[in-house]
């Protein structure tokens, strides 16, 4: 049913809500800047790679939980999105293992 609303009531903005959005944006920007800094100050290696992965997960958390609002959804929805990602974790381990085996065979 489409209603003809000639007078739409605009609810005034909630300042606290908007401030929170910008705070998340600031966190994302700062983490990216830190990643940038690490790229040029810390030598390449397993340690740096793990720091990058950790910071990426931090950023992903803020985007998914706050921007995509998943953190405020029902628990069942949160889990039905997060649990299938276990397959991805599985694929990471199995293909990294495969990559190392290929390196040994090829070189």
């Amino acid at each position: 049913m489409e209603q003809e609303n000639t007078q739409v009531q605009v609810i005034p903005a909630d300042k606290a809500k908007i401030r929170k959005i910008w705070r998340v944006a600031l966190i994302l920007a700062v983490v990216t800047a830190v990643e940038f800094l690490i790229a040029f100050t810390v030598g390449a290696g397993a340690f740096r790679t793990w720091v990058f992965i950790l910071l990426t997960i931090v950023k992903a958390f803020y985007i998914v939980a706050e921007f995509m609002h998943l953190g405020h959804e029902k628990k069942s929805l949160i889990w039905s999105i997060l649990l299938p990602m276990m397959f991805v974790v599985f694929l990471i381990f199995i293909l990294m293992y495969q990559g190392a085996a290929l390196l040994e065979v090829l070189y």
Binding site: I92, L95, M96, Q98, G99, A100, L102, L103, L106, Y107
Partner: peptide, 8 residues
């Protein structure tokens, strides 16, 4: 990741 890992 896999292909990079399989190269020196």
């Amino acid at each position: 990741g896999m292909i990079r890992y399989s190269h020196p």
